[in-house]
Amino acid sequence: MRWINTRPGRGTQLALMLLPFLLLAVAYGFGSAARLAENANDKLLPSLAGFADAIDRMAFVADQRTGDYLLWSDTRASLVRLFAGLGISTVIALLIGMAIGMLPYLRALLSPFVAVISMVPPLALLPILFIVMGLGETSKIALIVIGIAPTMIRDLALRVLELPREQIIKAETLGGSSWQIALRVLLPQILPRLITCLRLQIGPAWLFLIAAEAISSDSGLGYRIFLVRRYLSMDVIFPYVVWITLLAVVTNYALDRIRIVVFPWSELETQG
């Protein structure tokens, strides 16, 4: 039988899915054990016990200075910034993207401008944001918005343009005005795309958040990682990285579930 026709069963699929994660953990275990055997105080690859200790310290013991449970207060600070940034970007992208996709006049006006803006490296703007908006929350949220909104606008505008012209003509023959067609024909078909687009932007959003937190902040997951870097605290950095990854994965999955529940037809289509 050709390789392209062989398919794993359910159990094999699960095992294959877990295998790379397991291999990574085992490889780490060996590396860590080898280094610790040579030097019991090695900080680069801490043992599992070291991690457990650090996690306990960060998550379940109040900080002596502030009385906060650091992992949770960092998570809260970061997620507020992240979701504020994602939320604002979504609203901007939906309004401007739909307008560009629908109305030729606005497309002529805005489409080239957005294309140029999306090419500006957002991190290069970070100093400007800090100078103009100060070092508080505003500049960090603004960085996320500047980083991901232009891409989302372009993606959504393209999706609107990709909708078959026949659909819009049909809606016109049903007596729809521009507003009615936007509301009942375009918007509902764009929303599932918006969610998918948002999922793809979760990664970049975290990138910009951590960059902003690393440079200037007093809380947040990115701030903590860069703070403890000075003490070579790999036992804190690794769990934080895993935690951030986990948050991103869960957000990604949750958004996809929301899409399927709210827009069941969008899933039917992909199965076609």
């Binding site: 078959p164 026949e166 003509i169 049909k170 007596g175 509902p188 078909q189």
Partner: peptide
């Protein structure tokens, strides 16, 4: 609305 149309494809709204 005085002229209806049916195309070969994409005439109905998938959502």
């Amino acid at each position: 609305p005085d002229r209806g149309i049916v195309f070969q494809r994409y005439s109905v709204f998938p959502h």
